[in-house]
Every structure is written in structure tokens, then in C-alpha cells.
């Protein structure tokens, strides 16, 4: 276990180092820069720009900047935003919390919808329930989430006036972005629950459980579902990764001040320190999510746990 942890941590550090280099260079090869219109007034004179670059160390070669940056990071200094001087640690706190609230709500919504419907579709296979659920799943997977977001805003905010179209952080403002963020994952989870249930519904042990005289609901919900959830759980790791990607779009559309929103904003403004920290944060999150999925998979499947 100790060697497993060490290997896993080393692997994570390696990925983080490589991605920090890539992110650092990518940001600086993008046209413009903090002084080229991102942070400074685009109409400011050449002298002001050069003075700004010199003060911020942006006139130095990129690799020198990188090592200076690395030095700060290693000492735990994440720096401040170029745009407004806020310490990044502060931004990290509020924005990460907002994103977690949104992401967890989306996950919750999707599992509450996807698992019961997946089970129902499998048990009522080839009936209208199944066809409706699977039709919904195809829509959920096929509709691009930015378009879905616009449609939902149009109906629920503009036409019906039931829900706010954007903003943070009251429960009504959470509903639309959470639904959009949940859509594709719900569809995929539902399909996977259904096919995995169908696979296990015909296992020998199901017949044996019925032969013991168990009620049918107990056979389905306690035994078949528990077996069927194993791949669904390992899918969660993957879904957390997608969630990060979609968060950029959904948070931007709904102006939800989370990690994704801030990252998009900081990249557009060439606010290098913020963009660097937040993109690395997302990478750490995805790595941890995959690790968590491995552990959860082991917990769900005793055959893996012991081996």
C-alpha cells in the first residue's frame, strides 16, 4: 500500500510538472499579454507597457520567468491576480467552493435521475418506459450543453420567468446550471446502468436468489443493482473529468463564479498567475478523481479488494 501511494504521488508530481511547463509556455505564446490589452488599458502607450512588463518581470526570457515562478510556488506563494491584485489563495477559496457546490449538485441530480431510470428501463425492457428513457438518453448525449443552456434559459427564465438566467449563489440560481452540467453524464450513466443491469439480470445467482424465496424487489434492488453499479462507479471517475471540462462552458454562460468561469476570464485577460494556478488546480482535481474512482471501485467489488 505504501509503495502504491508513493508511486501514485510521484506519478502525479510528474504530470503536474509537465503540465505546468506546457501551460506556462502556451499562455505566453498566445498573442497579446497582460500589457497588450488584457490587464492594462489597450490604448496605453508603449512606454507604459514596457515599464509594466519590466516591473512584472515579463520582459525576461520565458524559461527564466518559469524558474522564478517555480521558486515562488515551491515556497507556497501562489501570487496575486494581475488584474486586480487579489491574492490567488483568496480566489481559490471562494471559486473552488462555488464550483464544488455546482458540480456536486449536478452529480447528485444525475444519479438521482439516472440510476432509478436505468433500473426501470432494464426491468421493463422493450416497453414504452424503456424506449422513453433511452430516447431521453440519446437526446441528453446528443444535445451540446451550451445549446441546452440557451434553450433552458429561454424557456425557464425569459418565457416562463420561473428561474433566474444567471448569477450566484442562491438555490434558484443553481438549478439551471446544475441541470445543464448534469445532462450528458445522466444520459451516459442511465445507459450504463441499464446495460449493466441487463447483463446481471440473467446471471445464475439471480435464479438462485429467487430459488431461496427472496421477493423480486430484493433480488433486483439489493443484488442485481449492487452488481450492476460496479462499472457505474468506475464511470464516476471519468465523469468528474468531463464535469471539469463542461464547467468552463456552463459557468461562463451562467456567470457562475467558479473555477471554470475564473479560468476562462483569466485566460482572456492574460492574467497569467491566475490562469496558471487554476488550470493546474483542474488537473489535480482530475487526477484525484481518477484515484478516488479506483478506490471506490475496489470498495464496490470485493473480488478486486482482496486481490
Amino acid at each position: 500500500m505504501a509503495s502504491y501511494l508513493a508511486r501514485r504521488t510521484g506519478y502525479m508530481l510528474l504530470i503536474l510538472t509537465i503540465s505546468s511547463v506546457v501551460i506556462f509556455y502556451a499562455l505566453r505564446t498566445a498573442p497579446g499579454g497582460p500589457s497588450g490589452g488584457g490587464v492594462l488599458n489597450p490604448l496605453s502607450s508603449q512606454e507604459i507597457r514596457q515599464a509594466y512588463d519590466k516591473r512584472m518581470g515579463l520582459d525576461q526570457p520565458v524559461y527564466t520567468q518559469y524558474f522564478i515562478y517555480l521558486g515562488h510556488i515551491v515556497r507556497g506563494d501562489l501570487g496575486t491576480s494581475l488584474a486586480n491584485g487579489t491574492p490567488i489563495v483568496e480566489l481559490l477559496g471562494t471559486h473552488a467552493r462555488n464550483s464544488l457546490v455546482l458540480g456536486l449538485t449536478a452529480l447528485l441530480i444525475s444519479y438521482v435521475i439516472a440510476i432509478p431510470l436505468g433500473v426501470l428501463a432494464a426491468v421493463k425492457r422493450n416497453t414504452w418506459v424503456d424506449q422513453l428513457a433511452m430516447g431521453g438518453a440519446i437526446l441528453g448525449m446528443g444535445i451540446p450543453n451550451f445549446w441546452l443552456a440557451l434553450i433552458l434559459v429561454y424557456f425557464f427564465s425569459l418565457r416562463l420567468g420561473w428561474l433566474p438566467s444567471a448569477g450566484c449563489c442562491d438555490p434558484p440560481q443553481l438549478i439551471l446550471p446544475a441541470l445543464v452540467l448534469a445532462a450528458e453524464g445522466t444520459a451516459v450513466t442511465m445507459r450504463m446502468t441499464r446495460s449493466s443491469m441487463l447483463e446481471h439480470l440473467h446471471d445464475d445467482f439471480v435464479r438462485a436468489l429467487r430459488a431461496k424465496g427472496l421477493p423480486e424487489w430484493q433480488v433486483i434492488l439489493r443484488h442485481v443493482l449492487r452488481n450492476a453499479l460496479i462499472p457505474v462507479i468506475s464511470l464516476t471517475g471519468l465523469r468528474l473529468g468531463w464535469l471539469v471540462g463542461y464547467a468552463l462552458i456552463v459557468e461562463t454562460i451562467f456567470r457562475w463564479p467558479g473555477v471554470g468561469y475564473l479560468l476562462v476570464d483569466s485566460v482572456l485577460r492574460r492574467d497569467y498567475p491566475v490562469a496558471q494556478v487554476f488550470s493546474l488546480l483542474l488537473i489535480v482535481f482530475v487526477l484525484l478523481a481518477n484515484w478516488f474512482a479506483d478506490i471506490a471501485y475496489g470498495l464496490a467489488n470485493p473480488r478486486i479488494r482482496v486481490a
Binding site: R207, A211, K212, H223, N227, I230
Partner: peptide
């Protein structure tokens, strides 16, 4: 089932639920 009449199947591994 189980109370008056019981059955033992051929393949004991697949007849037991692997996750319980």
C-alpha cells in the same frame, strides 16, 4: 421456495452473489 422446496444448482460459484 426455500421453506418447503429448495434447489442446489450445478455451478456453486456463479450461483452465489459475488458481492455479498
Amino acid at each position: 421456495r426455500g421453506e418447503t422446496v429448495s434447489i442446489v444448482f450445478q455451478e456453486p460459484l456463479t450461483s452465489l452473489d459475488p458481492v455479498f
